[in-house]
Amino acid sequence: MHQYAYLITCTDDDRDEEDRVMSSGTQTLAADQDPREFATARLEQNRVEHSYYTGPRRIAYWPHECGALLPRTAPANAEHLDG
């Protein structure tokens, strides 16, 4: 099992990343679960949950130590997926 953090932001304006946050959190993935598949599913879920926003969005996701604070911006080692 691996803990991952994610941060979903809207990407269609020039506000700072921390001001564009739509969703953030952590999730424990099974040892055989692909983090990119998790990110894709979470991005799709965000699109349903925030259907009022029809613009582009990006998810940043990265390995996260259980119990560590969740930052307001993605760290340098984060993977990104646009959707």
Results as ranks from 00 to 15, higher is better:
D12R: 13
T26Q: 14
R57A: 09
N77E: 10
R72N: 04
E44F: 03
T9N: 07
A31G: 11
L43S: 02
I59F: 10
D16P: 02
T73W: 00
Y6A: 06
D12V: 11
T28W: 06
P75A: 01
N46G: 00
T73I: 06
A76W: 03
F38N: 08
T26G: 04
R20V: 02
M1W: 08
A76F: 07
P56D: 15
T54E: 14
T40W: 09
N46W: 00
R57L: 13
L7Q: 07
A78E: 05
N77A: 11
L43M: 14
M22Y: 12
Q27V: 07
T9Y: 01
I8K: 05
D82H: 13
L70S: 02
Q3W: 14
S24Q: 13
E17A: 12
Y6Q: 02
E79V: 09
D32Q: 15
R42N: 04
Y52G: 12
W62L: 10
P56V: 00
T11F: 04
A39N: 00
D34K: 14
I59M: 06
Q3S: 15
P35V: 11
V21L: 03
A78R: 03
H64S: 03
A74F: 02
E65H: 06
H80Q: 09
L70Q: 04
M1C: 05
Q3Y: 13
D16M: 05
I59E: 02
D34W: 07
L81W: 14
Q27D: 02
D34C: 12
P71I: 04
I8W: 07
G67E: 10
S51R: 06
L69T: 02
M1N: 08
L43C: 09
M22H: 13
A5M: 10
Y61Q: 01
R72A: 08
R47S: 01
R20T: 07
T40R: 15
S24I: 00
L43A: 09
T54D: 13
M22F: 15
R57P: 00
H2F: 04
V48Q: 13
D16K: 08
F38E: 08
L81K: 06
C66I: 09
R72W: 00
H80T: 08
T28N: 05
A68Q: 09
T9K: 13
Y6W: 12
D19S: 07
P56W: 11
S23H: 11
F38T: 05
R57H: 06
Q45K: 08
M1Q: 09
R57F: 03
Y61R: 01
L81C: 06
Y61H: 06
L29H: 10
F38W: 10
E79R: 15
